[in-house]
Amino acid sequence: MGKVTLLFAGKSYDTDVQSVRENQIVIFDGPYNMRQRMVVAGIAHTQSGYNYRLIDPETAEEHTADLIRPLRDKFGIGHYYDDEHPEFMDAAEVAALRTRADALKAEQEAARRAAAEDAERLRTIGAERLRQIVPDDAVAVIIGEQHESECDPYTDYFGSRIVRTVILGFSTHTRDLFPEMRKAAARFEGTAHLAERNGEYEHREKYSMGHGYYLGTHRYSGWQVSKESCRDKEGIIKRFAVVAGNSDNVCIENPAPVQTTAPETVADARVEIVEYSEKSIAVFGDTKPLRDTLRDLNGLFRAYLTHDGTRCAGWIFSKRREQEVRSALAAYLK
């Protein structure tokens, strides 16, 4: 009933036989040469055999194991004990360690409950927000994700974790189009630099273990812009409700009409309109107070443009919209 066979190790073990005693030190051999010392802080016998409560003496983090093998049988990842020279921790120290572990476990559980409650609150707020702004025919979301590298070249591990997600727009199709992603990238300060048409930002990794199509300067760090397909509007709401619970994570186009009268707060803003190419014009200067107006005019923000021989930020427009742009910005022209 409690027999475990490890095929690659060529060994069988009876988990109904107790292998270690309380207060005994065991070693966990993990991946990438990770080795962790733990002490046996409790032993229980169940229908499937013995189960061991293990605690890390340094962190007080708790683990469990149902198989602890002798060190002489070491093969692969697993828990081991020294059967020739067993090592034990003082019983009083183990008792104190149990108290620390119980307190840490309670603290972690409280944090998990608080996080779950906060996520549910955000989910409710975000679902209502998305229900109002997601088009009825939307089937995909363009998002920006901030990646934090977890690469470790010494162990040959490469990866990252996502520390923030923002919604940049919605789409009525599921095709991966970089122009669409670039336009969406311009709506958020963190991804604005990816709005520049630069082949080095375009990544096509639709293969096994690839990251799909995305805009980014680095695979494992910084901001990336990509498109995520969802079934329909309700699918989008379900998938991104928690993200949208924070209004700072929703950076979509403002559908309000173009503002042609200068509000008092931007009365001092001064901009310059120049011919940027045969088919485009650019707006340079103090554009930050006017970003909503420029965005409503279907402008494309680019962090790196060239003006008067220097690199600077600006807004690009089709030359066909020049008159409309000049009319809307008439009060701010230099």
Score class of each variant (00 low, 15 high):
residue 56 D to L: 04
residue 82 D to H: 00
residue 82 D to F: 01
residue 90 D to C: 07
residue 46 T to M: 12
residue 101 A to F: 01
residue 76 G to S: 05
residue 81 Y to H: 14
residue 96 A to M: 12
residue 107 E to I: 02
residue 74 K to V: 08
residue 62 E to I: 07
residue 50 Y to D: 00
residue 95 A to I: 04
residue 110 A to H: 10
residue 56 D to V: 04
residue 113 R to N: 11
residue 125 I to M: 11
residue 126 G to T: 05
residue 68 I to W: 03
residue 93 E to N: 13
residue 72 R to T: 03
residue 131 R to Y: 09
residue 132 Q to Y: 07
residue 120 E to P: 09
residue 129 R to G: 01
residue 73 D to P: 08
residue 123 R to I: 06
residue 61 E to A: 11
residue 95 A to R: 15
residue 118 D to R: 15
residue 100 R to M: 07
residue 100 R to V: 02
residue 140 A to Y: 02
residue 59 T to A: 05
residue 87 E to A: 12
residue 72 R to A: 02
residue 51 N to A: 13
residue 54 L to C: 01
residue 48 S to W: 14
residue 88 F to S: 01
residue 143 I to H: 01
residue 128 E to Q: 13
residue 123 R to W: 06
residue 48 S to K: 15
residue 105 K to H: 13
residue 112 R to D: 08
residue 66 D to I: 12
residue 108 Q to N: 13
residue 130 L to T: 00
residue 49 G to A: 04
residue 50 Y to M: 06
residue 120 E to I: 10
residue 132 Q to T: 13
residue 131 R to Q: 13
residue 93 E to K: 15
residue 82 D to P: 00
residue 97 L to H: 02
residue 119 A to Q: 13
residue 110 A to W: 08
residue 81 Y to G: 00
residue 146 Q to T: 08
residue 52 Y to G: 00
residue 96 A to F: 06
residue 57 P to K: 07
residue 130 L to Q: 01
residue 87 E to V: 13
residue 71 L to R: 11
residue 54 L to P: 02
residue 122 L to H: 13
residue 101 A to N: 01
residue 59 T to K: 11
residue 76 G to N: 07
residue 68 I to E: 00
residue 79 H to W: 15
residue 75 F to D: 05
residue 115 A to I: 10
residue 100 R to D: 09
residue 49 G to Y: 06
residue 53 R to Q: 13
residue 51 N to Q: 14
residue 65 A to P: 04
residue 100 R to E: 06
residue 58 E to C: 08
residue 76 G to K: 11
residue 59 T to M: 05
residue 49 G to N: 06
residue 132 Q to H: 12
residue 60 A to S: 11
residue 88 F to I: 05
residue 118 D to K: 15
residue 79 H to C: 09
residue 52 Y to S: 00
residue 71 L to I: 12
residue 95 A to M: 09
residue 49 G to T: 03
residue 108 Q to R: 15
residue 75 F to G: 04
residue 63 H to D: 11
residue 103 A to L: 12
residue 85 H to F: 03
residue 97 L to T: 00
residue 121 R to K: 14
residue 98 R to T: 04
residue 125 I to E: 10
residue 130 L to M: 05
residue 88 F to M: 09
residue 55 I to R: 00
residue 77 I to P: 04
residue 122 L to W: 10
residue 91 A to N: 11
residue 50 Y to V: 01
residue 80 Y to R: 08
residue 96 A to H: 12
residue 64 T to F: 15
residue 92 A to H: 14
residue 90 D to K: 14
residue 68 I to R: 00
residue 140 A to M: 04
residue 66 D to V: 12
residue 73 D to I: 05
residue 132 Q to W: 05
residue 46 T to E: 12
residue 145 E to P: 04
